[in-house]
């Protein structure tokens, strides 16, 4: 432990320099390009987005336009942030979002390439900001249990085996950031859709509409131009919430049983 502390203290005091190659694109119609920026004296305890804040302050000082990127909670839960960093969604660290990435994961002098999500159903709006409203549309197609407010039974009249509740929660942890789509060579949204389908498949409340739900959500996903799933597993590997491929398997079972019984 003392060694660990010693190491982290040394790292803490050493500031770092980076070369950034960032995708700049004025708007959806404009052609984009990479711009190169040099950034000095960055603390390793600085988060990736704070590093971009520092860059932006410097750009504004020079009367240049700051880099646009989506972000809000900055603690890994809202799913707003999402940058493609050195060829990986959310960058080199595992199980985290871009806002949780810290500069200590890079080496002094590194060149860091920053791009937006690249997927047809997620068109670029500006710089690193993309339009992910396709995800909302998939949920609108059936990613809910149809109950109106009021008139529902007492919560404890619906017991759920703890194991099932835990699996449902694992699936429900999805933050809708879109890293799965960005990671997939086919731009498939299977992990995103499966997470919702699987959550409800594990709960008694979800059974009533199970068939309809999976059919409608998959149909909407296809309609919106997301690609097919070829089981490469890139989505699972890059998912900041480490949502497992087993949910895709569960969704496939749901889908086949729905089509078979239809």
């Amino acid at each position: 432990m003392s060694l660990l502390r010693y190491r982290s203290e040394i790292i803490k005091f050493k500031e770092m320099n980076f070369t950034l190659k960032i995708w700049r694109q004025e708007n959806a119609r404009a052609k984009g390009r990479f711009e190169t920026y040099q950034l000095q004296d960055i603390s390793p305890d600085c988060s990736f987005l704070e590093m971009l804040d520092i860059l932006n302050q410097q750009l504004i000082d020079k009367f240049e336009k700051p880099v646009c990127f989506d972000h809000d909670c900055r603690e890994g839960i809202c799913g707003a942030c999402g940058l493609y960093i050195n060829g990986r969604p959310h960058g080199p660290d595992k199980g985290i979002t871009t806002c949780q990435l810290h500069m200590r994961k890079f080496k002094d002098g590194d060149t860091i390439v920053v791009e937006p999500w690249r997927a047809k159903p997620f068109p670029v709006i500006k710089d690193l900001v993309v339009d992910r409203s396709a995800f909302d549309k998939i949920i609108q197609a059936g990613g809910f249990i149809s109950v109106n407010t009021g008139g529902v039974p007492d919560a404890n009249t619906i017991p759920v085996p703890r194991k099932n509740a835990d699996i449902a929660m694992d699936a429900a942890a999805c933050i809708g950031c879109g890293a799965c789509v960005a990671a997939c060579k086919n731009a498939s949204a299977m992990l995103f859709v499966a997470a919702k389908v699987s959550q409800f498949a594990m709960l008694p409340q979800g059974q009533v509409e199970a068939k309809e739900r999976v059919l409608k959500m998959v149909q909407k996903m296809d309609e919106l131009g997301f690609g097919n799933c070829t089981n490469t597993g890139a989505c699972e590997a890059e998912c900041p919430k480490e949502i497992s491929l087993s949910h895709i398997a569960r969704m496939n079972r749901e889908y086949f049983s729905a089509t078979f019984n239809a």
Partner: peptide
Amino acid sequence: IDQCVAQGVPFAR
């Protein structure tokens, strides 16, 4: 709580 459970909120059990 009743409403959220009916919606499928996976509360701890």
